[in-house]
């Protein structure tokens, strides 16, 4: 392990970290703008041109607000909750290949933080521990609404995790690899997984909505029933962390969707462009970000279109519709794989 490589990886990690934070920041602005447009409004446009400084203003506001902690709260866990949520949200970006290889001075630089050969499993693991932040936060608030929200969030996430795993397993079956990099590399050109896995994609995107606690699955923070869900008692930047991590999750989920189903950094006609590989890599990264932006837009689009599920509907949908669907998809995939072997 030489220093050169280590510095590169560290700077890449830092860069991606900052990038995710930046994107999440502007995702909040985008959300508000998009919501405005959907409702024939303008959205925030006062802070800076087009409201570009709005996220900064929001962040400042959150920092300036009163740091409130309930008297009976478990102090350490109360702080641990949002931190853990943030941490987990940032962790999963490690295995996403942000682009192909850059060749600078004869050395290949991979634009993926860690090409571990069990990237998909790693994602499972990270997603599965995402529950902790929510549960700890909800419980530590010592508030029944927060606790209910936390329990709801946890059961929702666990339920939808299953169907999501099933959907990813089909991808693993078709590609034969657990490495996200391999999966993306196999979708060279226009050979995307969405063509072979439409049902899997549907299941995955629905589960992604649920895992990110986005409408129509935003039960945990359902204002009308549970005040504010698990973050009822939170204020200031700790609340900001919870809200922020939602946008990071959305970003990562979009990146996962793009990587697993829409070819990641691959784009059609990438072989006939006739430019140097480095350019292809750069264009590919740009294309990936366009895809991610599109899916984030879809997230928002859906949020401002669909109403929220009722809790029993949510559970029934997860267990009785999505999971069987994912299983049928799994069986079908296996069947076709045998058929066209």
């Amino acid at each position: 392990m030489d220093i050169h490589f280590l510095t590169y990886k560290l700077s890449l990690a830092g860069g991606i970290l900052l990038l995710s934070l930046l994107i999440a920041m502007y995702a909040t602005l985008l959300e508000r703008k998009v919501a405005g447009f959907f409702q024939d409004r303008l959205g925030p446009n006062r802070a800076g041109t087009f409201g570009l400084l709005q996220p900064v203003a929001d962040g400042l506001k959150l920092f300036m607000k009163e740091e409130f902690m309930p008297a009976n709260a478990d102090k350490f866990l109360y702080i641990l909750g949002p931190s853990l949520t943030m941490l987990v949200a940032l962790l999963s970006s490690a295995v996403i290949p942000w682009g192909g290889n850059l060749n600078i001075g004869g050395v290949d630089y991979s634009l993926q933080m860690a090409d571990i050969n069990i990237g998909v499993l790693y994602t499972f693991a990270v997603v599965s521990i995402g529950v902790y932040g929510v549960m700890i936060g909800g419980w530590a608030s010592n508030n029944k609404y927060a606790l209910m929200g936390a329990v709801r969030a946890a059961s929702q996430m666990i339920s939808y995790e299953l169907a999501m795993s099933m959907a990813i397993v089909t991808i693993v079956m078709t590609t034969g690899s657990l490495s996200v990099n391999d999966i993306v590399a196999q979708q060279h050109g226009f050979n995307w997984n969405i063509w072979t896995q439409p049902i899997g994609f549907l299941v995955f995107i629905v589960c992604a909505f649920a895992e990110c606690n986005r409408t129509p699955f935003d039960l945990p923070e359902c204002e009308t029933e549970l005040i504010g869900g698990y973050h009822t008692e939170y204020s200031s930047m700790k609340l900001g962390f919870y809200l922020f991590s939602e946008y990071i999750n959305m970003f990562i989920a979009s990146a996962m969707i793009s990587s697993l189903y829409f070819g990641g950094y691959n784009f059609p006609f990438m072989d006939v462009l006739g430019v140097s590989p480095n350019w292809i890599t750069i264009i590919g990264t740009a294309v990936l970000f366009i895809k991610i932006a599109f899916f984030m837009f879809v997230f928002m689009w859906i949020r401002w279109t669909l109403p929220r599920f009722r809790y029993d509907q949510l559970m029934r949908f997860g267990w009785k519709v999505l999971l069987p669907m994912a299983m049928v998809n799994l069986i079908l995939t296996g069947f076709f794989k045998l058929l066209f072997k």
Binding site: F37, Q39, D40, R41
Partner: peptide, 8 residues
């Protein structure tokens, strides 16, 4: 609605 003229 996204492409409608804003009434603000």
């Amino acid at each position: 609605h996204f492409f409608k003229k804003e009434v603000t």
